[in-house]
C-alpha cells in the first residue's frame, strides 16, 4: 500500500529555479531563449485546425518585445515599434465614420478568427467582451476601459476619427503591449468604420 507523499510548498519553492512559492502571483522574467523554448514546445504540442494554422504560433517583434519585458518595455524599445506599427495602418480616404447600427452588431459578436469560425462569416470585434459601450447594455466586460459616451466626451472631428480608426486597426501602434487585439487581422475597412461610427456618431446608443 503506497503511502501518500507530498512536498510542502516551501520546500518545493526552494528548489524551483523561478525561486518563488507557487500561487503568489509572481511573474517570471522571460528571456528570448525562454520564448524559443516555449514556441518549440507549442510547435510540437499543437496541430492546425480550420483557419488556425501553425503559422500563428510564430512570434512577431511586438509579441517578442512584450513577452521579454513583461508587457512593460522601456521607451527606447517601445517607441520604434509603435511607430512602425502606426506606419502600417491603412487609413481609408474620406470620412472614417460608417454605420453605427452595423457597428453595434460587430461589437456584440464574439466570433472571428477561431478554428471554429468559417472565415468571412459573422466576424466581430468581441468589443463587449472587454468594454462597456452602449450604457443600456448590461452584459459587458471590464478588461478594457468603459467607452460609454466616448463621442459625446471627445467629439468627432477628423483627428479623433483617425485616432479611433487607428486604435481599432492596431491598438499596439498607440500602446505597444496593450491587451487589445490588432483587429485589422480580423475586420475589414468597412467593419472598422462601422465601429468608429458606434463610438463617434452622435446618434449612436454609445453617446445617448
Amino acid at each position: 500500500m503506497k503511502r501518500f507523499l507530498w512536498i510542502p510548498a516551501a520546500a518545493l519553492a526552494a528548489c524551483t529555479t523561478t525561486g518563488h512559492a507557487p500561487g503568489t502571483g509572481e511573474r517570471p522574467k522571460l528571456s528570448e531563449r525562454d520564448l524559443e523554448q516555449v514556441t518549440a514546445q507549442i510547435k510540437r504540442d499543437f496541430k492546425p485546425r480550420g483557419q488556425a494554422t501553425m503559422e500563428r504560433v510564430n512570434l512577431d517583434e511586438v509579441q517578442r518585445a512584450c513577452n521579454v519585458h513583461n508587457d512593460n518595455p522601456p521607451a527606447n524599445v517601445a517607441k520604434p515599434l509603435e511607430d512602425a506599427q502606426l506606419k502600417a495602418v491603412k487609413f481609408p480616404a474620406g470620412s472614417l465614420i460608417g454605420d453605427w447600427k452595423k457597428g453595434e452588431r460587430i461589437a456584440q459578436s464574439g466570433r472571428g478568427a477561431m478554428w471554429s469560425d468559417k472565415p468571412g462569416v459573422q466576424e466581430g470585434g468581441s468589443c463587449y467582451n472587454c468594454h462597456q459601450l452602449n450604457p443600456k447594455v448590461e452584459a459587458y466586460g471590464t478588461i478594457g476601459p468603459s467607452l460609454a459616451g466616448f463621442g459625446k466626451i471627445r467629439g468627432n472631428r477628423p483627428e479623433i476619427q483617425r485616432y479611433v480608426y487607428g486604435k481599432i486597426y492596431n491598438a499596439k501602434a498607440y500602446n505597444l503591449c496593450s491587451h487589445m487585439p490588432r483587429l485589422s487581422a480580423t475586420l475589414n475597412e468597412e467593419q472598422i468604420k462601422d465601429l468608429v461610427a458606434l463610438l463617434l456618431d452622435p446618434a449612436s446608443p454609445v453617446n445617448q
Binding site: T17, L30, V57
Partner: peptide, 21 residues
C-alpha cells in the same frame, strides 16, 4: 514536476497568435 510547473508558468504569460493573447 518542478520543470513542468516552470514551463506552465512560461506558457501562462506567453502572448502569441493573431490576437496576441
Amino acid at each position: 514536476e518542478k520543470a513542468s510547473y516552470e514551463m506552465g508558468e512560461k506558457l501562462f504569460f506567453h502572448r502569441a497568435g493573431p490576437w496576441d493573447f
